[in-house]
Design a protein around this nucleic acid. Structure first.
Lengths: 140, 140
DNA sequence: TATTGTTATACTCTATAACTATA
DNA sequence: TATAGTTATAGAGTATAACAATA
C-alpha cells in the first residue's frame, strides 16, 4: 500500500499535532481537565485580571467558543470573575485553581520534554523557531 | 500580557497545524471538498481497490468515522465500490473522481510549497524528518 | 471467530450570526 | 459606536459501543 501523503510536511504536521495533543490530554485526565481548560488556567495564573476577550486572543479562541469553557471553570470553583472596564470581566484563580496550576505546569513541562526528546538532538535548539515559522496568521 | 505557552513547542505545533489545515481547507473550497475528503480521493487514486478499513488505517481514521465520508463521496459520484474479500468493499474512483484528482494534487503541492517557503532555508531539507519524529504512535 | 461495514452517540474544537450590556 | 459577554447553532474531527455480514 502506497501513502503519498507521507511525502508532505503538512500531513506530518497534522498527525504530529493531533497525536501529541491526545497524548497530553491523557496525561491531564488525572487532573480532570482538558488541554484547553488547563491552558486557560495557566494563562490566568500568569495574567491575573485577564479578560475573557484577551484570554481568547492569546489562545486564538473566539469569544463564543471560550465562554462555555470559562463558565465550566467557574462552576468547578477554579476561577472567579470581577467587574472590569466596560462589560469586561476580570478573571482570577480561586485558591482551588491556584492549587492546581503547579500540577498543570508540571504536566506541560513533562509534555514538552517528551517532544524535545523525540526529535533528533541537532534540531532541538531550533525546534520552537521552526514550529513558530510554520504558523499562519490569517484564518485560525 | 504574558503568554507562557509561547515557550512550548507543543503549543506551536498545535497552532501551526490548525492554521495550515484551515489554510488548505480554504484552498480546497473551490473543489467542493474538505481536506479529509480530498486526501481519501488521492489515496484511492494511488491505491485502486483499497478497502475502507485499509483507507482508514492509512489515514488513522477509525472505521465508524470514515464511513460517512465514503458514503458522501459515493453520493457525489466521485468513487464507487465493488465486492472484495469477506465483507470488504473495494474502492475505486469514478471518471469524475479521476478528473478531480490532478486538481487536488496541485493544491496539495501548492500547500506544501507554502509550508517549505515559510521555514528558514537551512531546515527545509530536514523538515519532513523533523515533523515525522514528532508523531506519537500510541493513541491517535 | 475475526474482520469489515454500518448505525448511533457523544465530546471537543471551530465558525457565524445575533442578542445584551457597558464605556 | 465599539467592545465585551452571551446564546444558539452548525460543522468538522474523534472516540466507544454495538450490530450485521462474510470469509
Amino acid at each position: 500500500m502506497n501513502n503519498p501523503l507521507l511525502d508532505y510536511p503538512g500531513y506530518h504536521l497534522r498527525r504530529a499535532a493531533s497525536s501529541r495533543l491526545a497524548e497530553l490530554g491523557r496525561h491531564l485526565d488525572g487532573l480532570g481537565l482538558g488541554v484547553t481548560e488547563a491552558s486557560i488556567l495557566v494563562l490566568i495564573d500568569q495574567n491575573p485580571d485577564l479578560s475573557q476577550a484577551d484570554c481568547g486572543r492569546l489562545l486564538s479562541i473566539q469569544r463564543p467558543n471560550l465562554n462555555p469553557l470559562i463558565q465550566k471553570l467557574i462552576q468547578r470553583g477554579l476561577i472567579l470573575t470581577a467587574k472590569g472596564q466596560g462589560r469586561a470581566l476580570k478573571l482570577r484563580l480561586t485558591p482551588a485553581g491556584h492549587a492546581l496550576t503547579p500540577d498543570i505546569i508540571a504536566e506541560f513541562q513533562a509534555h514538552e520534554a517528551r517532544i524535545y526528546a523525540a526529535v533528533p538532538e541537532r534540531f532541538r535548539a531550533d525546534l520552537v523557531a521552526i514550529l513558530r515559522s510554520l504558523w499562519t496568521t490569517d484564518g485560525s
